[in-house]
Each structure stands twice: as structure tokens, then as C-alpha cells.
């Protein structure tokens, strides 16, 4: 694809999110999550263009992309009823068993670094079928061998009610799939510009991988044009700063001289 129009790393992330969401009817996106939101919007635009069943998106904290009328409890009620197919979770720490820590590093409760808290993760991870773990920072401090606090566990013991859980882990370097039977991650693909050795160095847990992992596919021309047009327009309603940054970055990528001059 090199030689054709250059692509931003974040465009690859957004297109990957859209691929991971393929087939969902309703996806919920947390506040301050522009890349997951853009990926969901891209999937919606692709489905719309193809004349397929519409995708419903709920962005928490947004007025335009939020149709709940029963307060902040409704998202969880909705998820508990099985009406939400996909959701995104980040994490201060994520380990190789898919455990997520949103509370803090070090001992508990007097953590050496305290993060905000578990939010709805201790529930949504159990009931939403396709939880996509998304964290751009790919470093050993984030991807640890064992989390210091389990806000939400990757798997549950037999007999525990569990309809949902981790589906994939997407970072700035690569894409992992979660193997529910083995309870671990397998490297699915490496983003352009990165390699397996670098990912191993940056990951604090062991993961399965082929000897020569594939490269994460770049979006095709049709997808890219939707992403740069309709999706950026929609995104700028909810995340104006992020959308502007993307457009500036794109401008700089396509025409470095003009970007320096402006």
C-alpha cells in the first residue's frame, strides 16, 4: 500500500476497531474515548453504505449520541438485559489473563498510584459479550504479568454467571485476541512500523504468537474515504479537539511543507 496515500497510525486503529465490532447491533462507548467512538461510527457508516442493518451507538456523556432517559443506571440495566453487544475498557494495568485494574498500583487501599476507580467494569465485563480492551500506551507498566487489583477478571470459575468478557486487546503496536478457553492472549497482528521483538519487549506478560505474525491490514480506499469524511464530521460534534488534531495530522502527512508553513 506504500506509495498510495499515506495513512495515520490512528486511522489504522480506528479501522481495526470497526473490524472488531463487525456484526454488533448496539455498542456503548465510554466518555473521553474518541478512537473507540470513531471506530463505532466508521462501522455504522460502512453498514449504512452497504445497506445493511443499522448499528446503534451510545456514547456516554454525549447528548447527541445518547438516547437513555432513565439516568445513569439505564446503561447497566440495558447491558444486564443483553441489549449491549460491545463495550470498551481501558485500564491502568491489564495482565495476560485479561484481568483489568482501574483502581491503583501497589498495595490496596493505600495505592502508590491511585486511578479513578473501577467505574462499571466489575459488572459490564461479565455481561457484555464483546469487550474490547483498548489502550494506546503499550508498555510493561501497563501490560503487566499480574495486576495489583482486579477491577474486572478476564475469566470466571465454572458456575459463575458470565455472558461477557474480553474479546480483543488493541494497542498502538498491535492487536491481540483473547482465548477464552485458555484464558490468555494471542497476538493477531502487528501494526505497520512495529515488529514482534518490540512488542515482546513492551509487554510484561507472555502471549501466544505465530513465528511470523501478520501485519494489521490498512483500511481500503472506500473505508478511508468514509473515515476522513463522514466519520470525522460526526466525530467532531462529540470530540472537536480530537477531530481537529486528526485533520491537522493528516494535513501534515499529506503535505508536510504546507503544514510547516501554516
Amino acid at each position: 500500500m506504500s506509495g498510495a496515500s499515506p495513512i495515520l497510525p490512528r486511522e489504522i486503529l480506528i479501522a481495526t476497531v470497526a473490524r472488531l465490532l463487525d456484526g454488533v447491533r448496539h455498542v456503548a462507548v465510554g466518555a473521553s474515548s474518541p478512537i473507540p467512538a470513531a471506530g463505532a461510527m466508521l462501522l455504522r457508516a460502512l453498514k449504512q453504505q452497504a445497506g445493511e442493518k443499522p448499528v446503534r451507538i451510545s456514547i456516554l456523556g454525549s447528548v447527541e449520541h445518547n438516547f437513555f432517559t432513565n439516568g445513569s443506571a439505564e446503561l447497566f440495566d440495558c447491558a444486564g438485559q443483553g441489549r449491549i453487544d460491545a463495550f470498551f475498557l481501558g485500564g491502568g494495568q491489564i495482565d495476560g489473563q485479561g484481568n483489568v485494574n482501574l483502581v491503583g498500583a501497589g498495595a490496596y487501599p493505600q495505592s502508590s498510584v491511585r486511578w479513578p476507580g473501577s467505574f462499571g467494569s466489575a459488572y459490564l465485563y461479565f455481561v457484555v459479550p464483546r469487550v474490547i480492551l483498548f489502550r494506546e500506551e503499550h508498555s510493561p507498566r501497563v501490560f503487566v504479568n499480574k495486576v495489583d487489583f482486579i477491577s474486572a477478571p478476564g475469566t470466571s470459575a465454572e458456575g459463575v454467571y458470565r455472558r461477557g468478557g474480553p474479546h480483543a486487546l488493541l494497542t498502538s503496536k498491535g492487536l491481540f485476541r483473547f482465548n477464552k478457553t485458555q484464558g490468555n492472549f494471542a497476538l493477531d497482528s502487528v501494526h505497520p512500523g512495529h515488529d514482534l521483538a518490540e512488542i515482546k519487549d513492551a509487554t510484561g506478560f507472555r502471549f501466544d504468537h505465530p513465528a511470523r505474525p501478520e501485519q494489521t491490514p490498512e483500511p481500503d480506499a472506500r473505508t478511508l474515504s468514509l473515515l476522513r469524511g463522514q466519520v470525522m464530521d460526526e466525530l467532531s460534534e462529540t470530540y472537536p479537539d480530537f477531530a481537529k488534531q486528526m485533520r491537522d495530522d493528516l494535513q501534515a502527512l499529506q503535505d508536510p511543507q504546507a503544514a510547516i508553513a501554516s
Binding site: 445513569s72 483502581v103 466489575a122 461479565f126 455481561v127 482486579i150 477491577s151 459463575v160
Partner: peptide
């Protein structure tokens, strides 16, 4: 929300899914 809902109904508690296996 469950704790408040229990109080709203004058019930001593409400059961909820999830949570099992968490440090929460």
C-alpha cells in the same frame, strides 16, 4: 444504583450479577 434502589423500595438489599472474583 442497586443499593439506592433497595432503599427506594424499602428492601434490605438487592441482588446483582457480576463482581464475583473481583477485588472490589
Amino acid at each position: 444504583h442497586a443499593g439506592l434502589m433497595a432503599a427506594q423500595k424499602g428492601s434490605p438489599f438487592l441482588p446483582m450479577r457480576g463482581l464475583i472474583g473481583t477485588d472490589v
